[in-house]
Amino acid sequence: MITIENCLPPIMGWVCFAIIAILLENLCSCYFPFLLSSKFYYRVRNKKLQSILISPRRTRSKDSETAPEDRNKLPLLGCIYCVVIFPWLFCEIVILLIVLALVLLESDFLYSPFVTNLISICEFLFVNECFWIFIAGMPLLYMIDYSLGLRRWQKHQKR
């Protein structure tokens, strides 16, 4: 039997998961002209989206050495991360809220095959090891892109 007590841990888990995903997104959301993938970026024009998608500490702070024209660019790896993570998180929370609403309404629909499948999908989304590898691997790929690009740029500066 599904109760409110059974719904709260997944919702709290989702909140922790969302915080981790957003923190990791900040690690791969800074554009630098020396990135190996620097030719591929998305210019974020909306101020609210800039504050969400682009790390404020590394590229948009007042003491940043990033050129003003580069401060609102989301690099390729950051774009890929956002395109995957935000729909994933959205699907998870929608399913959790549907189940919570059905529990609160004490609906018999909660025990239907459809809702059972929704719960299975939510569990799959949350515990999928490929997704955890993705959210941890994208910042690592970005750091490799950054390090190799910076190294190449420094070599060209010495010449």
Rank of each mutant, 00 (worst) to 15 (best):
Pro139Val: 02
Ala18Lys: 03
Arg152Asp: 08
Met138Val: 15
Lys73Gln: 06
Val94Tyr: 06
Phe17Arg: 04
Ile93Gln: 02
Leu140His: 01
Leu110Tyr: 03
Glu25Tyr: 02
Ile11Met: 07
Phe109Leu: 09
Phe34Asp: 00
Thr116Tyr: 13
Asp108Glu: 15
Asp108His: 05
Glu65Val: 05
Arg43Leu: 05
Met12Lys: 14
Ala101Cys: 13
Pro68Ala: 12
Lys73Pro: 01
Lys39Tyr: 11
Ile93Glu: 03
Ile19Phe: 13
Leu49Phe: 10
Glu92Cys: 07
Ser64Asp: 05
Cys16Leu: 11
Lys47Cys: 03
His156Asp: 07
Gly149Cys: 11
Leu76Lys: 09
Asn128Arg: 07
Ser51Cys: 06
Asp108Ala: 04
Glu92Thr: 10
Leu110Gln: 04
Leu102Ser: 03
Ser37Arg: 04
Glu25Leu: 11
Leu35Met: 14
Glu129Thr: 08
Asp108Arg: 08
Phe126Ile: 11
Pro68Lys: 12
Leu23Glu: 12
Leu125Arg: 05
Ile52Arg: 02
Asn117Cys: 14
Ala67Arg: 12
Val44Trp: 04
Glu129Gln: 10
Met143Val: 09
Val83Leu: 14
Leu53Lys: 08
Pro10Asn: 08
Thr3Arg: 01
Leu140Glu: 01
Lys62Phe: 04
Ile93Asp: 02
Val127Met: 06
Arg60Trp: 09
Glu65Gly: 15
Val84Trp: 12
Glu92Leu: 10
Pro139Leu: 03
Gly149Thr: 07
Gly137Lys: 03
Trp153Pro: 00
Ile85Arg: 02
Leu97Asp: 00
Pro87Trp: 13
Leu104Ala: 01
Arg60Gln: 15
Phe109Thr: 00
Phe40Met: 14
Val83Ser: 15
Ala136Pro: 02
Ser61Trp: 10
Leu100Trp: 00
Trp14Gly: 01
Ile19Gln: 04
Leu125Phe: 15
Arg57Lys: 08
Cys28His: 00
Met12His: 05
Ala18Phe: 13
Pro68Ser: 11
Ser61Arg: 12
Ile2Pro: 00
Gly13Glu: 05
Gln50Lys: 11
Tyr42His: 14
Asn117Ser: 14
Ser55Phe: 02
Pro9Met: 04
Ile19Asp: 03
Leu8Tyr: 07
Phe131Asp: 00
Ile135Lys: 03
Pro33Tyr: 13
Ile98Cys: 05
Glu129Cys: 06
Val15Asp: 00
Arg60Tyr: 07
Asp63Phe: 06
Cys82Lys: 00
Glu5Gly: 02
Cys16Ser: 11
Thr66His: 10
Ile98Val: 15
Cys16Arg: 01
Ser51Asp: 15
Glu69Arg: 12
Ile11Val: 08
Phe109Ser: 03
Tyr42Cys: 14
Lys155Gln: 14
Pro68Cys: 07
Leu23Phe: 02
Lys73His: 06
Ser107Tyr: 02
Asp108Thr: 01
Asn6Cys: 04
Cys7Ala: 14
Leu23Ser: 14
Leu36Gly: 13
Asp70Asn: 15
Ser112Met: 08
Phe114Gly: 03
Asn128Ala: 06
Leu141Ile: 02
Lys47Pro: 10
Pro75Arg: 04
Phe114Met: 10
Ser147Trp: 12
Cys79Lys: 05
Gly13Ile: 07
Leu76Thr: 05
Lys73Cys: 11
Asn26Ala: 06
